[in-house]
Simulated assay, not measured.
Amino acid sequence: MRKWISFFLLSGALLSGCTGDQRSPLDTSIYNQSNDKIGTASLTEKPDGVEVALKVEGLEPGVHAVHIHEFPKCEAPEFKSAGNHFNPKSKDHGLMNTDGAHAGDMQNVQADASGMVDVKLMLSEAKLKEGQMSLLRKEGTSIVITNGQDDGMTQPAGDSGDRIACGKITLDADEDEASDPTEPDKKQEK
């Protein structure tokens, strides 16, 4: 009898692991201030953090800051609903700050002459799994792009300007069916 009980418990544990929420990779749509989809961020759990593959278009050419924010809310046009930077360890802002950085601080990105960004960034302290550093803890977080560059030091957000694009990072973020402007239109290819 003990063998059967052990067998069923082991089988149940294996099956529950197979049907659990898929956390990596996780794709999220990025929207501008007019609520138009301008691209995607694909987040992948890596041994050294979370890799963010960011692909967006329609930005002003030049340097822009990208940060993870504390709430999965993207109410246009200001995106203030996203809250402050994701900072579960209560550090100061800035990748160049000796008392920093926020877990949501990332390198600046360069939009080319056409306004396109296609880059991979790393969040070294973040996780997609459960825990204090999870981007999916509570309801989730968001990714926000600003119109200026982050100076890496100024509190609380690097003097990076207005928020111009936002995407919710949640377990169901990849269920968004809006077409991605950075990908070729499948209907036109036929």
Rank of each mutant, 00 (worst) to 15 (best):
G148C: 04
S142I: 06
S134Y: 02
T182K: 04
D174L: 00
M122D: 00
D151A: 03
N147A: 09
I164S: 03
E125K: 13
Q155S: 09
S114Y: 09
S179I: 10
E177V: 12
K127W: 05
D176L: 11
D185H: 13
A178C: 02
A113P: 11
V119E: 00
L135D: 11
G115Y: 10
K120A: 08
K187T: 15
I143H: 07
K127N: 11
S160D: 07
I164T: 00
M133V: 07
I169L: 04
G152V: 04
V144R: 02
P181V: 15
G161Y: 00
K187D: 15
M153R: 06
L136K: 07
G131Y: 08
P184H: 13
E189I: 15
D176I: 10
M133L: 13
M153V: 11
D176S: 14
E139W: 06
M116I: 15
L128T: 07
T170C: 05
M122T: 08
G115R: 08
S134H: 06
S142C: 02
I143V: 13
A111R: 06
S124A: 10
V109N: 05
M122S: 00
D180M: 13
M153N: 09
M116A: 12
D180P: 00
N147I: 06
Q155R: 05
E177N: 08
Q149V: 04
V144H: 01
S179A: 12
L121C: 04
D159I: 00
P156D: 10
L171M: 07
L121R: 03
L128E: 05
D174C: 07
